[in-house]
Lab assay of single mutants.
Amino acid sequence: TTIEWNGTKITVDNPQKAKELAKKIAKKLGLTVKVHGNTITIE
């Protein structure tokens, strides 16, 4: 699972952990999480 935001890509083996990490990042930055299959985008 890949997390993408602002040109940065982070690959996380565990999809559940990836989703939790994305939510934490999005919350800190005041952004939203969008899931597209194996890609999680923070916008």
Rank of each mutant, 00 (worst) to 15 (best):
T1H: 10
T1M: 14
T1R: 07
T1E: 06
T1G: 08
T1D: 06
T1S: 08
T2V: 13
T2G: 06
T2C: 14
T2N: 09
T2L: 10
T2Y: 05
T2I: 14
T2A: 05
T2E: 12
I3A: 05
I3Q: 06
I3F: 02
I3T: 06
I3K: 07
I3R: 04
I3E: 09
I3V: 09
E4I: 14
E4K: 05
E4Y: 09
E4C: 11
E4F: 09
E4D: 14
E4V: 06
W5D: 07
W5A: 08
W5H: 11
W5C: 15
W5F: 15
W5K: 10
W5S: 09
W5M: 13
N6Y: 14
N6C: 15
N6S: 06
N6K: 04
N6E: 14
G7W: 06
G7H: 06
G7F: 05
G7E: 12
G7N: 07
G7T: 08
G7A: 04
T8S: 10
T8K: 11
T8R: 10
T8A: 10
T8G: 14
K9Q: 13
K9W: 11
K9P: 04
K9E: 10
K9A: 10
K9F: 13
K9T: 15
K9V: 15
I10T: 02
I10Q: 01
I10Y: 04
I10G: 01
T11Y: 15
T11S: 08
T11N: 07
V12Y: 04
V12P: 01
V12A: 04
V12L: 13
V12F: 12
V12S: 02
V12G: 01
D13H: 12
D13R: 14
D13A: 14
D13M: 14
D13Y: 09
D13I: 11
N14M: 04
N14V: 04
N14T: 12
N14R: 03
N14C: 10
N14G: 06
P15C: 09
P15N: 08
P15W: 10
P15G: 05
P15T: 05
P15D: 04
P15M: 13
P15V: 09
P15K: 09
P15H: 14
Q16Y: 09
Q16C: 10
Q16D: 11
Q16G: 09
Q16E: 11
Q16S: 09
K17R: 11
K17T: 10
K17N: 07
K17V: 12
K17L: 14
A18Q: 00
A18P: 01
A18R: 01
A18I: 05
A18S: 02
A18N: 01
A18D: 00
A18K: 01
K19M: 15
K19E: 11
K19I: 15
K19P: 01
K19D: 05
K19N: 08
K19T: 08
E20P: 01
E20R: 12
E20M: 11
E20Q: 13
E20D: 09
E20N: 10
E20H: 09
L21V: 06
L21C: 13
L21W: 09
L21R: 02
L21H: 02
L21K: 02
A22L: 05
A22W: 02
A22Y: 02
A22V: 04
K23N: 12
K23F: 08
K23L: 12
K23H: 12
K24E: 09
K24H: 09
K24N: 07
K24F: 09
I25R: 00
I25P: 00
I25C: 10
I25F: 04
I25L: 11
A26V: 04
A26E: 07
A26W: 03
A26R: 14
A26C: 07
A26H: 07
A26Y: 04
K27F: 03
K27E: 14
K27C: 11
K27T: 09
K27G: 10
K27H: 10
K27S: 10
K28Y: 13
K28C: 14
K28G: 08
K28S: 11
K28D: 12
K28I: 14
L29S: 10
L29G: 08
L29Q: 06
L29N: 08
G30W: 02
G30F: 02
G30I: 01
G30Q: 04
G30L: 01
G30D: 04
G30N: 06
G30C: 06
L31F: 07
L31A: 14
L31V: 12
L31I: 09
L31D: 03
L31N: 03
T32G: 05
T32M: 08
T32F: 03
T32N: 09
T32P: 05
T32I: 13
T32H: 10
T32S: 11
V33G: 00
V33R: 00
V33Q: 01
V33F: 03
V33K: 00
V33P: 02
V33H: 01
V33L: 06
K34M: 07
K34Y: 05
K34F: 05
K34G: 03
K34P: 00
K34A: 08
K34V: 14
K34L: 07
V35L: 08
V35F: 10
V35P: 02
V35A: 04
H36G: 04
H36P: 00
H36M: 12
H36A: 12
H36W: 03
H36C: 15
H36R: 11
H36N: 14
H36E: 14
G37Q: 05
G37F: 03
G37H: 05
G37M: 05
G37E: 06
N38I: 04
N38M: 06
N38R: 08
N38S: 10
N38F: 03
N38L: 06
N38G: 05
N38V: 05
N38T: 08
T39V: 14
T39S: 08
T39I: 13
I40L: 06
I40D: 00
I40R: 00
I40W: 01
I40C: 01
T41M: 11
T41P: 00
T41S: 09
T41D: 02
T41L: 14
T41K: 10
T41V: 13
I42V: 06
I42D: 00
I42W: 02
I42P: 00
I42N: 00
E43W: 08
E43N: 08
E43A: 11
E43Y: 11
E43F: 12
E43Q: 11
E43D: 08
